[in-house]
């Protein structure tokens, strides 16, 4: 089966030739299979956001190749990149990034409206994803009237409403209390299992990471070891992550 994400020899250098240069990523290689829930873990400053920005066409690599659903995204022009993000990718950001002048419903509907989906199809799509995420009661609220956890679930609904090939999350639980974080991760994991949505989650938090099928460790811009959940329970996997963080940090 075709891989969802294929990253080959990616390198990212910040700073122009005449400025101070900083190598944020070097020789990064990995894949994501369809329906997989992959975590990328690393300390702050290790290059996670940089990597995610490249995967989501918000930034371009200095060298290397990224294929998403078989399409080489490093060769797209800016319009194609925008369309690609609109059609193929769902985003969940740490700081929610909801538009506070739109209601929850309107926020969720936005990606569909951007694709010029007919308004007849928008409503059922929004309703079905909202039901799955338990948002039906708050659809007419504005973001300021919602709790952090609710906001993040609205953001998740927005990321999922247009059936993207893959959902990217950059520390989506970073601004949530532990209870809301757990609820969000449960939902994401449920959607991953039931609807076979591929998810790539970037985090420095072992607890969040324990929800993933597979974890790729990144340090100083380089991929280190990989950890697979196989048929461990989440608790066992969590312990395993903590152990390898101990060794990986050295």
């Amino acid at each position: 089966m075709q891989k969802i994400v294929e990253v080959k020899n990616i390198e990212k250098i910040y700073g122009k030739a005449d400025e101070k240069q900083y190598k944020a990523l070097s020789d990064v290689n990995f894949d994501v299979e369809p329906g997989e829930f992959v975590g990328i873990m690393g300390a702050s400053g290790s290059g996670k956001t940089t990597l995610l920005n490249i995967l989501s066409t918000l930034d371009t690599p200095t060298s290397g190749q990224v294929q998403i659903s078989g399409q080489d995204i490093t060769k797209l022009n800016t319009n194609e990149m925008a369309d690609f993000r609109a059609n193929k990718i769902g985003f969940i950001f740490q700081d929610f990034n909801l538009l506070e002048n739109l209601t929850a419903y309107e926020n969720i509907a936005l990606p569909l409206a951007l694709q010029n989906t007919s308004s007849k199809k928008i409503d059922p799509a929004v309703m079905s994803i909202s039901k799955k995420l338990g948002l039906t009661d708050i659809l007419n609220h504005y973001p300021t009237e919602l709790s952090g956890g609710q906001k993040q679930r609205v953001a998740a609904a927005r990321a999922l409403v247009h059936d993207p090939s893959i959902v990217f999350g950059d520390e989506p639980t970073g601004a949530l209390d532990s209870k809301s974080a757990r609820a969000l991760l449960d939902t994401m994991s449920k959607i991953n299992h039931e609807d076979n949505v591929s998810i790539l989650l970037v985090t420095h938090d072992p607890f969040s990471a324990s929800y993933c099928d597979r974890i790729i460790f990144i340090k100083d811009g380089e991929i280190g070891q990989e950890l697979k959940k196989e048929d461990h329970t989440r608790g066992e996997f969590y312990q395993e992550i903590l152990d390898s963080l101990g060794t990986f940090a050295d």
């Binding site: 800016t78 319009n79 925008a82 369309d83 993000r85 609109a86 538009l99 936005l110 990606p111 927005r158």
Partner: peptide, 16 residues
């Protein structure tokens, strides 16, 4: 700034 940046991220063309 934040609003437009978000719209850009979720795939709105700059022209739009």
């Amino acid at each position: 700034v934040k609003r437009y940046n978000m719209l850009y991220k979720i795939g709105t063309r700059t022209k739009v």
